[in-house]
Structure formats: C-alpha cells, structure tokens
Simulated assay, not measured.
Amino acid sequence: MRTSWRSASVLGVVAALVCPAPTVAVSQPHRESAARPFGADCSVYVEGSRATAYCHNPYIDTDRVQLHVECERWWDVDADSKPVELGPTGRATLSERCWKEIRTVWVSHLRRPS
C-alpha cells in the first residue's frame, strides 16, 4: 500500500500527540489552597418573619458563615447573625428574624485556611 503525503503528515501529527517529547520537571509554587473546593452547604428556610439556615462544612478549610436578613418594611431593622466558624465536618444552625415580612435572606462565606 502506498502512503500519500497527506496521510503521512496526518500520521506524523497523530504520532506527535500520542508520543509527546520528554519534558523536564520544574518546581512550581505550592497552590493547593486555591484549587481546593470550599464553602459550607447551607439550606435556608423562611417561616413567617423568621429565617433559619442549617450549614454543614464538608471541606478541609474552615468556613466562617453568617446569615443576613433584609426586612421588607423600611422601618424594620435588617439583621445579621453572629458569624460562626465551621471547621471540617462542622455543623451550625443560624437564625434571625424581622418584625414583619422578610425581603431577602442569604448566607455569606469567608475562607479561614486551616
């Protein structure tokens, strides 16, 4: 069987991709903390004027979680829970309320390297 120039160049490219040239190992700065997954899993429930968040941290780095509640009425004071530091496998329940209706609820996260 005769090989054409086009087939030969395709075979050369495939061979170069399959069998790359040897590489030299170069030491890189340690960047594991930036690549690690982070953030506690939080479920937020609103019942009437009370908001509750149940958080669990499945990761290695400590997560500082805080519940924030924004009230619907202009005269109602918005509330932020006390921050809680969740270590690996840590769990926490955060709760806050408004006098009347709740507009929005969210949980903030802050990484604390362990």
Rank of each mutant, 00 (worst) to 15 (best):
G48D: 07
S49Y: 07
R50H: 07
R50V: 15
R50S: 13
R50L: 11
A51N: 05
A51P: 03
T52Y: 01
T52L: 08
T52E: 14
A53H: 02
A53R: 03
Y54F: 12
Y54M: 09
C55E: 04
C55P: 03
H56M: 09
H56W: 15
N57T: 07
P58D: 05
P58A: 08
P58S: 04
P58G: 06
Y59W: 15
Y59I: 06
Y59R: 09
Y59P: 05
I60N: 07
I60Y: 15
D61W: 11
D61Y: 14
D61L: 09
D61S: 13
T62E: 13
T62H: 11
D63V: 08
D63T: 10
D63G: 10
R64V: 14
R64L: 15
V65D: 09
V65A: 08
V65L: 08
Q66F: 03
L67S: 07
H68W: 08
H68S: 11
H68R: 11
H68C: 02
H68T: 12
V69R: 02
V69F: 01
E70N: 10
E70P: 00
E70D: 13
E70F: 10
E70L: 14
C71I: 05
E72G: 00
R73C: 00
R73G: 11
W74P: 02
W75H: 04
D76Q: 02
D76W: 01
D76L: 04
D76G: 03
D78V: 04
D78Y: 02
D78S: 15
A79E: 15
A79W: 01
D80G: 05
D80Q: 12
P83E: 07
P83Y: 02
P83L: 04
P83D: 06
V84S: 06
V84H: 05
V84R: 12
L86E: 06
L86M: 08
L86Y: 09
L86P: 04
G87W: 09
G87C: 04
G87S: 13
P88S: 09
P88Y: 08
P88C: 02
P88K: 12
T89Y: 12
T89C: 00
G90K: 07
G90R: 04
G90T: 04
R91F: 10
R91Y: 11
R91M: 06
R91I: 06
A92C: 07
A92I: 10
A92F: 09
L94E: 05
S95L: 01
S95M: 11
E96W: 03
R97A: 13
R97P: 00
R97W: 10
C98R: 06
C98E: 03
C98W: 04
C98Q: 04
C98I: 03
W99G: 13
K100M: 12
K100C: 00
E101A: 14
E101H: 11
I102M: 07
I102A: 05
